[in-house]
């Protein structure tokens, strides 16, 4: 199907691939924020995942090992945030920002000597005949495993948050940590686990940038994707299903720019480059205008908990 010189199936396929890093990171952050923690260090955890995933994949000559390493190191890096905010009760906003700045610096140091190297290839999952279905084949069935994993994680996150006891506890901690504490839940321990999950997802999203999307290592290569992921969580009212929608919208805007140019449309590049950020601002303004509570923000978001009783 070709509309206006653009093959829609291929465009949608690129969009799905382009959205993976945002989607993974935003899903992780959704869980973190649902537990009442605001971690602004997504960008930092992503870049750490990108560099460590790349180094592991190149050293071990195995792309899957790279993703695992990216997730592990992202989680380990988020431990810094967890220790500062959950143990030492530091301000979450300041700590998160510091985490991002620190992550960018450390990754640049760790990545010395890894510029211009080719990582092992992450190929498409062989889905046999499904590949050849008209329209749906090129759009849905020619992706690498991480794309399908990220979609599965949308479902898994939704299921755990909304249909399991663990999810209920996480939400309880995020809505009213005093009440959750009174019920006997270890608020800070639960939050720590959520932060680790968020770090792992962001790290894996970062590894996807350095191992599949680009694929090579350069300084600061996540280039603001972590911030978009943060915006999407708000945009999606902290719901996994809407996070998927948001990630595709933003991923779509990012791939649409070069595609329109390649198809010969004379659209100024600047407008397309700023479109995701302009939409973020518009969405935030609309969503925060008057409605307030109906946004669905966890009531204890950003507040530290100290068990005084």
């Amino acid at each position: 199907m070709i509309v206006g010189g653009l093959d829609i199936a291929i465009l949608l396929a690129s969009l799905m691939v382009g959205a993976v890093p945002i989607l993974l990171a935003a899903l992780g952050e959704t869980v973190v924020e649902r537990s009442g923690v605001l971690n602004l260090g997504v960008e930092g955890m992503m870049i750490i995942g990108a560099v460590t995933g790349f180094i592991a994949a190149v050293t071990l000559e195995n792309a899957v090992a790279g993703f695992i390493a990216g997730a592990l190191c992202g989680a380990a890096f988020s431990l810094i945030f967890a220790a500062l905010t959950q143990v030492f009760q530091a301000n979450q906003v300041a700590t998160g920002l510091a985490l991002t700045l620190f992550g960018i610096g450390v990754s640049s140091l760790a990545g010395q000597g890894y510029n211009g190297i080719k990582p092992p290839v992450t190929g498409a999952v062989p889905l046999g005949l499904l590949r050849d279905i008209p329209f749906l084949g090129p759009m849905l069935f020619r992706h690498d495993w991480v794309v399908y994993f990220s979609l599965f994680m949308v479902f898994a996150t939704w299921f755990v948050l909304n249909r399991t006891r663990a999810g209920l506890i996480i939400r309880a901690v995020g809505e009213n940590h005093e009440a959750a504490h009174a019920l006997g839940y270890k608020v800070n321990r639960i939050r720590l686990l959520c932060i680790l999950f968020g770090g792992a997802m962001a790290g894996m999203g970062g590894a996807y940038v350095s191992l599949v999307r680009v694929p090579q290592w350069t300084d600061n290569m996540t280039n603001g994707v972590g911030w978009i992921a943060l915006a999407i969580v708000v945009f999606a009212s902290w719901r996994p299903g809407r996070v998927l929608f948001g990630a595709w919208l933003f991923g779509g805007l990012m791939v649409l720019g070069p595609n329109l140019q390649a198809a010969g449309y004379a659209i100024p590049v600047e407008y397309l480059s700023m479109a995701p950020y302009v939409i973020t601002i518009i969405v935030l303004v609309i969503m925060s205008s008057g409605r307030g509570r109906s946004l669905g923000a966890p009531a204890s978001l950003g507040q530290n908990f100290h068990a005084s009783r």
């Binding site: 690129s14 999307r213 090579q216 791939v255 070069p258 595609n259 390649a262 198809a263």
Partner: peptide
């Protein structure tokens, strides 16, 4: 010939996006 302007000398992510868009267009 299709031309995509990346507006950078060095940004592997943008360059990859541009190449992907061109390939998607049948280049």
């Amino acid at each position: 010939m299709s031309v995509v302007w990346a507006y950078t000398w060095f940004d592997p992510a943008k360059e990859a996006d541009a190449a992907k868009a061109l390939i998607d267009q049948g280049v």
